[in-house]
Design a protein around this nucleic acid. Structure first.
Length: 310
RNA sequence: CGCGGGGUAGAGCAGUCUGGUAGCUCGUCGGGCUCAUAACCCGGAGGUCAUGGGUUCAAAUCCCUUCCCCGCAA
């Protein structure tokens, strides 16, 4: 089968790689255009573009694929199926009608749950115990198409979004291949989603990473896991931002007001009171510094235990 | 040229402005106290102060080069 692949960030790479490994003919890769990124705002290609160029594939970038230029390009090449994985642009019906096997999307949740652009992070933040990969026919709605295949995986209690991201992205590659083979063999029956059970979660904002100690300790722990590595959880200490990378829920009930410290020394690290149980900040990062164990951070810096986080 | 912080002992930091013996907390090693200890007391080891050049009688400190790490913003 001749495939056109549309994807942009890291998540899509294992899917593209799986296509190559399985000897599909990837006739073109389409990504979002280069953008100024990082310190210094240098123009940098997205992860998929770097990978695809490295593999010697034909790469094209369109600011909006649905505009004439993009549509004409797709019509000008000969291919059977279009695959999208975290592409970041919405396709029009005109585009979806071009390939004969239609368009398949790889999504990192058990649809119809967790539609939207950040399913992995939100699943962790909401304390879900399991999630998975869904392949579906791409429709004009966002993540609403008929389900082709679905595989489930457990979410571990201390797993971060980054770790789950790794597992799901490689799982996505496997499910994608099985789906394509199934379509070729005609052994897959698309199943409509139960739209009544659908949930949709939005894109992540920086301030979604702010910890509110008025929540329960486990909820805070889930937030910290869910926003790691991006955008990262943080608390305010006066006017200074303290990033929090790793936490542990303790069995000790909170003794004082949420946000106050129960303890902060180089033996025990930083322990904070919440709405219910105390929570230990195990790995933290001061502005301009690298991330480090809380116990190490306190070797060179004293925190005033009477101060509270806000 | 987007804005900014930083590189000093195994870890985390102070010292830099105002040049003049390399410091602190933790860890580590040895000893002591103790029924005992992650607690306490005593002692020790461990540094080309990121890099290269310059100024100086003298540079972690002042001037310039290069490399690396990080926060914001995007």
């Amino acid at each position: 089968m001749k495939v056109v692949f549309l994807g942009t960030p890291d998540f899509a790479i294992p899917s593209l790689d799986a296509l190559l490994q399985a000897n599909f003919d990837v006739v073109a890769v389409i990504t979002q255009p280069d953008k100024p990124r990082g310190r210094g705002h240098k123009m940098t290609p997205c992860a998929v573009k770097k990978f695809a160029v490295d593999k010697g594939l034909e790469v094209h970038s369109f600011k909006k694929i649905r505009r004439k230029e993009g549509v004409e390009f797709l019509k000008s090449i000969d291919f059977d199926v279009m695959v999208t994985a975290a592409f970041g642009q919405i396709l029009t019906q005109e585009i979806l009608d071009i390939p004969k096997y239609g368009c398949i999307n790889v999504h990192a949740s058990l649809l119809p749950k967790y539609r939207g652009p950040a399913p992995i992070q939100w699943a962790i933040i909401n304390g879900e115990k399991e999630t998975g990969i869904t392949t579906m026919k791409t429709e004009r709605g966002v993540d609403t198409g008929d389900i082709l295949m679905q595989e489930t995986t457990e979410i571990f209690p201390d797993e971060t979004a980054g770790e789950l991201f790794e597992r799901l992205s490689s799982m996505g590659g496997g499910v994608l291949i099985k789906t394509l083979r199934g379509l070729e063999d005609n052994t897959i029956t698309p199943v409509p989603q139960n739209h009544d059970e659908a949930t949709h979660f939005p894109m992540f904002k920086k301030e979604d990473g702010k910890i509110d100690f008025h929540n329960k300790a486990q909820e805070i722990h889930n937030l910290v896991r869910g926003v790691n590595p991006w955008p990262g959880a943080y608390v305010m200490m006066g006017s200074e931002v303290l990033k929090v990378w790793k936490t542990e829920v303790l069995s000790q009930k909170s003794t004082r007001k949420p946000g106050t410290m129960a303890c902060c020394d180089s033996k025990n690290g930083v322990i904070v009171n919440t709405e219910d149980y105390q929570i230990a900040l195990r790995e933290i990062q001061f502005s301009g510094k690298r991330r480090m164990e809380a116990t190490a951070a306190l070797c060179g810096r004293e925190l005033n235990s009477s101060e509270a986080f806000t």
